[in-house]
């Protein structure tokens, strides 16, 4: 049974990864023998300058999901390279580094710094974080998406994925812009812009006023996005959006995803990625599927 998948020229030993911002740096808590089983690791998005993140309250639970407005708290690209990257490399699993520039130049400066590093497999451009003060996300504008992806592609040593936002009229238009600009893969889908109101104080619950909705609550919508995009683009899709179980992941794979990322589930069940991987393998065995590629995009 083959479960390895390929994006650009990178081979991942299985299709299971973690969504950015959901897999911690808390080395002391992790069982590394288990972490090593992942197909890839995507650390939390890193920006050019360090960011302290948004004021509390940053999260809340919702029916079958959560809101977050963390605000990309991170040590900046230099701090990441110096203090975080070595530990991630030590795990020995392909690393997909999620990056975000507040300007095109910042994206390019981050890429230039990462170009000098070893042990990185790919870049994921976070074009779609809803928790920053941008009026419009890059991933809400096909022209901006094309521009950023093509600029990064010109200089990046690594394959480039574009992570898109669900808050758009036509996701396929944005995905095609990314593909035309040379993206090696499309990551779908970031959180949905959302909010909650404290009816006693009549204030927004989150310190950032609005946040992003994730978790199983968004899964059917995410499956729909993946299906839409898979019909239009040829490059591989990394799918995320409320995956809690192997069943959830298999939906995305059948809809057309080459890889699947467990995100919010990590916060509730830290073993979810491995349980999902195990469940996918069991499914393939039970259905006598010899290579996972037969399953990708096999929707009737």
């Amino acid at each position: 049974m083959k479960i390895a998948v390929k994006i650009a020229d990178v081979i991942f030993k299985n299709p299971l990864t973690v969504a950015s911002g959901t897999f911690g740096h808390a080395e002391k808590y992790y069982d590394f023998e288990e972490v090593k089983k992942l197909g890839a690791i995507v650390p939390k998005t890193v920006t050019f300058h360090p960011q302290q993140g948004n004021p509390p309250q940053r999260i809340m639970e919702t029916p079958s999901g959560m809101l977050n407005a963390i605000g990309i708290e991170n040590p900046g690209i230099d701090g990441f390279i110096q203090n975080k990257l070595p530990a991630f490399k030590k795990i020995g699993v392909p690393l997909i580094i999620s990056i975000l520039g507040h300007t095109d130049d910042q994206f390019l400066q981050i890429v230039e710094k990462l170009n000098q590093q070893k042990g990185i497999s790919a870049l994921e451009l976070n074009l779609s974080c809803p928790n920053l003060k941008h009026k419009i996300l890059v991933a809400q504008d096909p022209k901006a998406t094309y521009r950023v992806v093509s600029k990064v592609k010109k200089i990046s040593r690594f394959p480039v994925m574009a992570k898109l936002a669900p808050n758009v009229t036509d996701i396929t238009e944005i995905a095609l812009a990314a593909e035309t600009a040379g993206a090696d893969g499309i990551s779908l889908i970031n959180t949905f812009a959302a909010m909650a109101i404290d009816i006693e104080t009549r204030r927004s619950v989150l310190g950032n006023f609005t946040g992003g909705l994730s978790g199983p609550a968004i899964r059917p919508a995410a499956v729909y996005f993946v299906h839409q995009v898979a019909k239009k683009v040829k490059v591989p899709i990394i799918a995320m959006g409320g995956i809690m179980t192997a069943h959830d992941a298999l939906e995305f794979i059948i809809a057309g995803a080459t890889m699947v990322a467990v995100g919010t589930a990590n916060f509730v069940n830290p073993r979810a990625p491995l349980e999902v991987l195990q469940g996918i393998e069991e499914y393939l065995r039970a259905h006598k599927i010899k290579d996972i590629k037969e399953l990708i995009g096999s929707l009737e």
């Binding site: 808390a26 808590y29 004021p55």
Partner: peptide, 17 residues
């Protein structure tokens, strides 16, 4: 105390000032 998701330092959700 703060509303907490992962409790493992991953989500950075339970930050306080």
């Amino acid at each position: 105390e703060e509303v907490m998701a992962c409790a493992l330092g991953a989500c950075l959700g339970c930050s306080i000032k």
